[in-house]
């Protein structure tokens, strides 16, 4: 193991990556919690949100740097979030809702179909060449005790933390959050308590998709935006949700951050070749499925009588 500074450096990198996974994993887990269904188009909703955010940002940013570009940055992110939220609701309404009473396989296949449609549409409309977000400000790293932290990393961590806290508050403490939890536990009974379950499902898709768009926009900040960007990131975030315990909100947060750390430390400290980095997540998935299939924070599900 290297020096302490090196360790903290990787920790920082791992946390940033993990935070992004966590934001995406939340969408998978929330939808699963309510519909017992994996929304395989989630990664592509993220991609669309990133493109929209990027277009808006590059259009309004102008040449000014500094404080105002930060406002422009958050405004663009917000537009991307809203767009993705509406897209998520529309996809649910058109491609999943009519299949709610069909076999379990049907909505899953529908989701895979939606995923291909979105990524192909994006490639057709916006081209396959990746696009880069103009930096909102000077990204020269700050050196704190030998650890290089970029302003982007700080921005990502702040956004991730704010989103998570807001979501936790909403789910645990708000009226709609309670209705959401009730719906995920027993849909029929929630209906009989006057909860409009269809509305709650739409809300779940909206929140999950908005979080995915946020994550995508943060990825745009660090890497690039391209039509298939949602595929691998989405799959890994899905792994994170399973690792944390699918259906469990805190589990998705823990799973995402853990996965980010494992990937970073796996390459940096254990010496897994960088080319195999993407396989780490899936190795972790297999191990979890063998050792604790319900996930770290998940509960072993009893068969319903």
């Amino acid at each position: 193991m290297g020096s302490a500074a090196e360790f903290f450096q990787h920790l920082m990198n791992g946390l940033t990556l993990g935070g992004i996974y966590a934001l995406i994993a939340l969408g998978y887990t929330m939808v699963y919690g309510i519909l017992k269904f994996i929304n395989f188009a989630h990664g592509d909703i993220l991609m669309v949100g990133s493109y929209i955010g990027l277009f808006v940002y590059n259009a309004i940013r102008g040449q000014i740097l500094g404080f105002w570009t930060i406002i422009a940055f958050f405004l663009s992110m917000l537009v991307g979030m809203v767009f993705s939220a509406v897209l998520g609701i529309a996809i649910e309404r058109i491609a999943y809702k009519p299949l709610r009473k069909a076999t379990r396989l049907a909505p899953l296949l529908s989701a895979i179909g939606v995923s291909f449609i979105l990524s192909n549409l994006a490639a057709w409309m916006w081209g396959t060449k990746s696009k880069k977000l103009e930096y909102p400000f000077n990204n020269a790293p700050l050196h704190i005790g030998g650890v290089a932290i970029t302003p982007h990393q700080i921005l990502i961590l702040v956004v991730v933390i704010v989103m998570m806290v807001a979501l936790k508050l909403f789910i645990d403490r708000s009226r709609m959050g309670k209705a959401m939890r009730a719906t995920s536990l027993d849909q029929d009974t929630a209906k009989l308590m006057g909860v409009k379950v269809d509305r709650i499902i739409a809300l779940t898709f909206a929140i999950g998709s908005a979080l995915a768009a946020t994550a995508g926009f943060l990825i745009a900040l660090e890497i690039k935006v391209y039509p298939s960007m949602g595929t691998m990131t989405g799959l890994k975030a899905f792994v994170a949700a399973v690792v944390g315990g699918i259906g469990n909100i805190s589990g998705a947060m823990v799973g995402g951050i853990l996965l980010g750390l494992i990937e970073t430390f796996g390459v940096a400290l254990i010496g897994i070749p960088y080319g195999l980095r993407d396989t780490i997540a899936f190795a972790v998935l297999i191990i979890i499925l063998l050792v604790k299939p319900e996930g770290l924070l998940g509960k072993a599900e009893k068969e319903k009588v």
């Binding site: 309670k178 209705a179 939890r181 009730a182 536990l185 027993d186 009974t189 009989l192 308590m193 909860v195």
Partner: peptide, 26 residues
């Protein structure tokens, strides 16, 4: 119109208070 069930159907993972609060939802 409200009802209860033959085989109790509470929101098991919610607290006692939260269960009743869901009844106040709308």
């Amino acid at each position: 119109v409200a009802r209860t069930f033959q085989n109790i159907r509470l929101f098991k993972e919610l607290t006692v208070l939260e269960n009743v609060m869901v009844g106040r939802h709308f």
